[in-house]
Nucleic acid binder design. Structure first.
Lengths: 212, 212
DNA sequence: TCGCTTACATACCGCATGGTATGTAACGGC
DNA sequence: GCCGTTACATACCATGCGGTATGTAAGCGA
């Protein structure tokens, strides 16, 4: 039986939901979804279990909301939006990679890429997570491919490459680099790989020696 | 109090240990380490909890043994040994990539790379796991770098590249490709990326156009 | 054949977890 | 000011978990 005089917090449903999403994101980033503890999330936010289960039917729904509303936004802001700038596509790639490399935080090196983490953990376990993650990866690849096609149109990128295929490779290389750096705990490895990606992109410039 | 007449299985400690390792590997491959259930492992093998805790002091020790004795061996057999063949280094790379691409099982596409999975999950959580995983990645990178240096010595690979840096990039790209394929559930994506790696390696051939 | 060690078997425990039942206080339309 | 709905709060539960205590039987050197 609940206590007689319950002290309810100020009613601000949107903010409560957002608070939960952010805390859940951090918790999932650190521990993954399965090991993410609702109690810890509640402890960090001061929100109660009743409020949580008012906003989300169960833990999976909270996790999916984190994927769709937090992780997706982060990916788009960091890896797609920087490509949608006026000017040549290839320098936009280079600038984005250098920007990412320069902003590497110890947390990013320790914890890796949230999307990659969730993909590795949840893809074989839950079809809904897999679909949500798959959709985000598809957006990422599509954004990269668009930039490549733009580069082809303006002549800064060779026309004989398959934009979608190269985009998939680039995304994989980025994710792999973050993952490897996380595995080794070595930030310089990640910087090295982002630099290698720059060199790879330079190789896409039109030139005498065709790749195939 | 245990039952009076306990039916013990045949005493074959080495085989029992190996059975546990293999079952634990499969369980960890599917669910990760934290979500791996000892009860499920025991259920699959018919081994009892007493036997398990006779061979391993705790769950972490079992997990570490899986990493060091199973995962490491798989990585070496698949990604390092194929490079240590007589003949030119570059064709050995190509052959290895094609061999891997041709042998892709649905399980590999669904579950990804065991080493990558464990790295992503365990690196920030447990220092012992991180060290063990880090050591395996270092062996992998070293194996690739050795092959690159060999190629440089025999003239099939440009001398102006940093073998260690390129090796790190190659390993990251492989792991990223497996991870991405797992996220999307798409095997053709993985095949595409392995093919892209071939092309990347072709670009390491000595030629007129230097990369930097 | 005795006796110690190794290799297993069984029962049980404490704990953290996700989830639920139930209650109450704030808000908004009327 | 009433009342239904929304937004929370609290107590509690069932379950699965890793781990342990304790027992037994096989192997084996002397």
């Amino acid at each position: 039986m609940p206590r007689r005089t319950a002290r309810t917090r100020v009613r601000a449903p949107d903010q409560t939901r957002e608070t939960l999403l952010q805390a859940a994101f951090l918790e999932m980033f650190r521990h993954g979804f399965q090991a993410a503890s609702l109690e810890r999330i509640l402890g960090h936010t001061g929100v109660t279990k009743g409020a949580l289960y008012h906003h989300f039917p169960d833990k999976a729904a909270l996790g999916l909301a984190v994927v769709n509303e937090v992780v997706r936004g982060l990916m788009l802001a960091r890896w797609v939006a920087p490509l949608e700038v006026p000017g040549d596509a290839l320098p936009a790639f280079t600038a984005m990679l250098r920007d990412r490399a320069s902003r590497l935080t110890p947390r990013e090196i320790e914890l890796g890429c949230p999307l990659n983490n969730l993909a590795q953990e949840m893809a074989p376990l839950d079809a809904r997570f897999r679909r949500a993650i798959d959709a985000i990866y598809a957006e990422w690849r599509a954004g990269v491919a668009r930039a490549l096609v733009r580069g082809q149109a303006e002549g800064s990128i060779r026309r004989d490459i398959d934009a979608a295929g190269v985009a998939a490779f680039l995304v994989a290389a980025v994710e792999g680099s973050y993952g490897l750096a996380k595995g080794t705990g070595d930030g310089s490895l990640l910087r090295n790989n982002l630099r290698m990606l720059e060199l790879f992109l330079e190789g896409l410039r039109p030139g005498r020696r065709a790749r195939r």
